[in-house]
Design a protein around this nucleic acid. Structure first.
Lengths: 189, 189
DNA sequence: CATTATAGTAAACATTTGTTCACTGTCAAG
DNA sequence: CTTGACAGTGAACAAATGTTTACTATAATG
């Protein structure tokens, strides 16, 4: 019952990107006294789903996040209450929202490292990269993802596809790097 | 300047999971009149970063989301303002938060479909699956990800790894499915 | 039975909220 | 030089906010 109401609240936040006021919760929960709301809210604050800072109500990370389960050998992992971590994907994957963007992958040049056509990669804008980074770079007026590598013999950097069908790319003059791939995301179906 | 202030607001929301009140914004932006805040807010509402519903201020999806860039042949994709889509990963990846959880992948049985050790998969809890789904199932008291398949000759379902080193698994009695993988997520580094 | 906790109603209240109005200084354009 | 737009100050205010207090009904416990 109280869980149902928390779900109502979650749905409201998901839809409106804010918490409802107590008066709105009256209708939302079917109460007719704000005090009922008040008591309910305090329970959720105690349970760490919500918090009050400077008198203002706000969700905690537990409010949003999905449980993250590790590798448990026996018994259904979801039942292990104590080991539960909570994670929101945005927080987990995106380090610096200011300088990041998403890129829909086309082509099969990175299948060797598990990046397929249609995947979305999170790219952090920057012009330098470490050897081994997966970088977004411009080659012959076309944008591609490649691995940033160093040729020890020729003593120069080059780009390598993670797919044996593609040849390595040695830049004629300089190599223009625009970003480094920080995460990969794939929706199935 | 106005962009700086929007970033201040974004940082506040990221930290507190709510928007500040006008009085709080006074200090946040360094104003000394609430009217200055009021006018600034209205600009952001016009620019569709914020919205007001039922008199309450809330962020729009544009406020949070990262730009999603498609495959653009020439020119730096980020510059194409019009084609910008915005996406928050949580919204994109998680269909039904109520019945979903995250699972950290161990083992190499699914490398063939680009799921590696350490990846996180989003699992939707359910007991049935379609042929071809990647399912979370219990085999011999151990949890694994496998592909749900059907043997046309024997006319029975079985589980198959996406890695030739693992044999297919034919259940002795019944096959217990606990969820279907809806998305894969990988952090690099 | 009596008791105690739980879930909710109802009314009252100080505080804070977002908004409005009148005004000031600055800067660029005609 | 004037004009108008822009960015901000300062004060005032009705409406809404979260909280408190007192009370009721229901169910669970011993």
């Amino acid at each position: 019952m109280i869980q149902d109401r928390l779900n109502i609240l979650k749905r409201f936040f998901k839809k409106n990107r804010r918490l409802p006021s107590y008066s709105e919760m009256l209708k939302l929960f079917g109460f007719s006294s704000k005090n009922a709301v008040f008591k309910l809210i305090n329970k959720w604050v105690d349970a760490n789903f919500l918090k009050k800072d400077s008198g203002k109500l706000a969700p905690t990370s537990k409010f949003f996040a999905l449980p993250l389960l590790g590798n448990i050998k026996a018994g259904f992992p979801i039942l292990a209450e104590e080991n539960k971590n909570y994670l929101t994907l945005d927080e987990y994957l995106i380090g610096d929202p200011q300088s990041s963007f998403l890129l829909k992958v086309s082509g099969d040049s990175m299948t060797g490292v598990g990046i397929f056509e249609g995947d979305i990669v999170i790219v952090e804008k920057k012009k330098e990269a470490y050897i081994g980074d997966i970088v977004l770079a411009q080659i012959d007026n076309e944008w591609t993802l490649k691995i940033f590598k160093k040729d020890r013999v020729k003593k120069m950097v080059f780009l390598e596809a993670a797919n044996p069908h593609y040849p390595p790319f040695y830049p004629k003059r300089e190599l223009q790097i625009y970003g480094v791939v920080r995460a990969v995301v794939r929706k199935i179906n």
